[in-house]
């Protein structure tokens, strides 16, 4: 992972969150990350991602609830449609919202209850165009009973659950008697399957194409 798409320059990010304290906290986490992430803009509304320096940021960190009682699904859709890489960062921990964001093309859905490590990992993955599945999202996908959900293998579901339960790839791997690397592969396969169902978006198409190239998944599995 890292900033290979942008050469050796650090990963850049912009955060849209109506709470200044959240932006300040994320800035601290980004600065402490390895490699460091440069938070080039922070703002309380969507202007920050469309104009000024924020428009050039590699990753958009989006608070889903900028206005009380209203989720910014439209803003997420527009950002994904123009090819922006979006990490949803929210306090809303309900599975339907999470799977909807994944369907719309968010590369990660991180709840604010989860620590900075998962947000930083999500930003680093997103800068690289890769999805990241934090433990809570893993649990939400494992419990997804929507009719339109992709068909997951028992091992993929077991991986999502183990990751959700332990929030440690090492422990999850030990529990399932597989390697931590395989855990990551399974998580990526799940996200690729999700990207392949429903609405197509540039980031999602790229995700599926890449998964096929890298051999995570075959065309047969996607058809299932």
């Amino acid at each position: 992972m890292g900033a290979d798409a942008l050469g050796n320059r650090p990963v850049t990010a912009v955060i849209v969150d109506d709470h200044a304290v959240v932006a300040a906290g994320v800035r601290t986490w980004c600065a402490a990350a390895d490699p460091p992430i440069e938070l080039i803009e922070a703002g309380p509304d969507l202007a920050a991602v469309w104009t000024g320096p924020g428009a050039q940021a590699a990753v958009v960190i989006l608070d889903l609830h900028l206005n009380a009682g209203h989720a910014e699904f439209g803003a997420l859709r527009r950002l994904v449609d123009v090819g922006r890489r979006v990490v949803v960062y929210t306090q809303a921990a309900d599975p339907e919202t999470a799977t909807h964001c994944v369907d719309l093309g968010a590369l990660a859905y991180v709840t604010k209850r989860e620590g900075g490590a998962h947000l930083v990992a999500a930003i680093q993955h997103a800068a690289d165009g890769r999805p990241y599945t934090p433990p809570w999202l893993g649990g939400a996908l494992a419990a997804d009973t929507d009719l339109g959900r992709p068909k997951l293998t028992p091992m993929e579901v077991a991986t999502l659950r183990a990751w959700f339960a332990s929030s440690s790839k090492r422990l999850a791997a030990a529990m399932l008697r597989i390697s931590p690397k395989t855990i990551e592969t399974y998580l990526d396969r799940v996200r690729t399957k999700y990207a392949n169902v429903g609405r197509q978006a540039p980031t999602k198409s790229a995700l599926v194409a890449r998964a096929l190239e890298d051999g995570w998944i075959t065309l047969d599995e996607l058809d299932g």
Binding site: A93, P95, R113, P135, W136, G139, A140, A142, A143, T145, R161, F164, S167
Partner: peptide, 8 residues
């Protein structure tokens, strides 16, 4: 303590 649930 982190307490999380998933599913019904």
């Amino acid at each position: 303590v982190e307490l999380e649930t998933s599913g019904r």
